[in-house]
Design a protein around this nucleic acid. Structure first.
Lengths: 295, 295
DNA sequence: CAATCCAATCGCAAATTTCGATAGCGGGCA
DNA sequence: TGCCCGCTATCGAAATTTGCGATTGGATTG
């Protein structure tokens, strides 16, 4: 059974005449006869009743016609899809991710890229800002999400949004710390952030600004790990406002004062790839998903 | 694009080697190469990346593979269906129907016949018992539903059920007729049933039994027509208990006494067709749908 | 560097498909 | 009745497509 036979089957069924079908198909009538015959032979059942006035579908033919039409439609679809894929940009992009996929709006990004450029294959690698940044510099990654201020000229930055951070403390410390100043906070233990994370830079900046140098307990590398450390009463730390407030509502920690420090969330890529088409497309889509406020 | 090419496409995609695919397909490797090449040419896009270790699907190939598989599955289905149809009983049966399709359980009958014998084409013709019976005798119909007692030896009967009938009167007549006997009813006008309907026989029987001969007003041929005549106060008549009681609940008529006369609903066919296979299948299915109480 | 594995290419053989010519069938019409 | 017309079936030959064996070329491996 071949598609050209099915096409003939359907055309004959529509026309009711082998001769007319042959004309439409740009075939001779004997060719049409032969195709239908071959189909009937393979199916083991007669598809048409022949009369001197033309042909009529048998009951079996009526039942099989929709199947044939489905197959034909499928083949048309496949060819259309193939042709629509022709000339589409294609390639692979490795992207570093940090924090949570939701925060990065990764789902919409991947979905829209897939929809618009189905041949572009995106792979993600989860990590923490410092490490990811290094991978981009080493070109192990083509681009990445990044949090914090970029220290390298060679790495270009496309800003996405600002993330506010607050100081989080164990709930039990509230009585002691409510209303105190940074100097007092400096005498408390702080939960240390991995040296590779942007959080550690945030801490360093904040401490320098307020001229304190607290004792660090442990050193963890994930937002959620910081959270559980604070909850367990190990020390203070800076957490994303959203996370900290959600945890505070559950009574897991207490947010100190209303000091807010913000860090930029951005998209980074090697400067020399500025004009690479694939990366350009990705950045366009990213810009749609993270619209920038008018300056 | 032909099915054999799609089969090759899918096999190559599974195997990752043109050579291995060729072996599975009982083809030579150059043949497989040519088929894939032809497919790529027609699609206008490359499906595989060739390496010295075999072939890998391109991104486009990955997107098109499911389509190809769908088409292949469709073609297999079609052939299976065709082969399952082979040897199935086939033909046409014209069946006379009366009353309502629901009452005859016509839906289940047609559905089950379609499911079990998809090549048998049933056509129905709606009418009233007397006419339908005549059509069966004339062999204009192959079989029919019938209500009443069969007067012809040449027409065979397969009993289905008994339909109870009651005497229905206009609601306003209740005061006058409640508790009276048949003789009194005989002095009232009755709505006449078509001479061809079994209802007229039912009336005749009932009247003879009680020795009355009422005046007939109008003569209608449908259950629903009788109902509206009674509702309009034209006269009495016998109606199917179910219909009459439903109408009584709506206040459209009043059911006199609890006299119940029953008529058999049956399936009839020409006696000489007793052994016809198609009719036999129909009667079997009918017997399933109308199971008979153990005698 | 030879061996091996794999896909691409080429010319020819085989199979399939198609065509033109013709026969046969059945309904409509004079 | 007999002729005509439109239709499908059949046949042999031509055209096209498909397939095969042999071979080449490229890449990897030991």
């Amino acid at each position: 059974m071949e598609i050209y036979q099915l096409r003939t089957f359907v055309t004959v069924a529509q026309q009711g005449h082998l001769t007319q079908a042959a004309e439409i198909l740009h075939l001779s009538q004997p060719a049409v006869t032969a195709q239908i015959k071959a189909l009937e032979e393979e199916a083991g059942i007669s598809l048409f009743e022949r009369t001197s006035a033309g042909v009529t579908l048998t009951e079996a033919g009526k039942l099989l016609l929709p199947e044939a039409e489905r197959i034909l439609a499928g083949s048309r679809e496949m060819l259309n899809k193939a042709r629509s894929l022709k000339g589409q940009p294609s390639g692979k992009l490795r992207i570093g991710t940090i924090l949570t996929p939701e925060l990065l709006r990764l789902g919409p990004l991947l979905a829209r890229m897939r929809e618009r450029f189905p041949l572009v294959q995106l792979t993600t690698m989860q990590g923490i800002s410092g490490i990811i940044l290094n991978e981009v510099r080493k070109k192990e990654l083509d681009a990445a999400f990044f949090i914090g201020r970029n220290p390298y000229q060679t790495v270009h930055v496309q800003p996405l949004t600002e993330l506010p951070y607050v100081v989080a403390a164990p709930p039990a410390w509230r009585a002691e710390l409510e209303g105190v100043d940074w100097r007092t906070l400096g005498r408390q233990p702080w939960v240390g952030a991995s040296q590779f994370s942007s959080l550690s830079k945030l801490h360093a900046e904040a401490w320098r600004e307020h001229n304190i140098a607290p004792k660090k307990v442990h050193e963890v590398d994930q937002e959620q790990s910081m959270l559980v450390c604070v909850e367990a009463g190990l020390g203070l730390c800076m957490l994303r406002k959203e996370v900290a407030e959600a945890a505070e509502r559950e009574g897991r920690l207490w947010v100190w004062g209303d000091a807010e420090i913000s860090m930029p969330l951005s998209f980074i890529y090697p400067g020399e790839r500025e004009d690479e088409p694939l990366l350009g497309l990705l950045r366009e889509v990213l810009a749609e998903i993270w619209p920038q406020p008018a300056v």
